[in-house]
């Protein structure tokens, strides 16, 4: 697992307290609206996302940049760069 700090995102989706598999459904829709090279930030408190998001990126040819913790908001921040 790659850990990142201060990653700049072009769009953010807040999925904290939202149920599984919203952590896959909403990012898939949002990434469509991004341009190639842009970064999507996903906020989630769901542990399963730590496996699911990198796996989804690998399967769909998107770049999983890494994960940052957000203690203040009690959630993870995951970053994806759109590759196509």
């Amino acid at each position: 697992m790659k850990f990142v700090k201060d990653c700049q995102a072009d769009a953010t989706v807040d999925l904290v307290y939202r149920m599984c598999p919203m952590h896959l459904l909403e990012p898939v829709e949002l990434i469509r609206d991004l341009r190639e090279g842009q970064v999507l930030e996903i906020l989630t408190d769901y542990d399963g996302a730590l496996e699911d998001i990198p796996a989804w990126c690998a399967k769909n040819g998107q770049e999983f940049i890494g994960i940052g913790e957000d203690e203040e908001n009690d959630c993870y921040r995951l970053y994806i760069r759109k590759r196509h």
């Binding site: 999925l15 307290y17 939202r18 149920m19 599984c20 598999p21 919203m22 459904l25 909403e26």
Partner: peptide, 12 residues
Amino acid sequence: PLIHGGIQENGR
């Protein structure tokens, strides 16, 4: 959420 389960109402 009060009711946990699937993704109805956008997972809320």
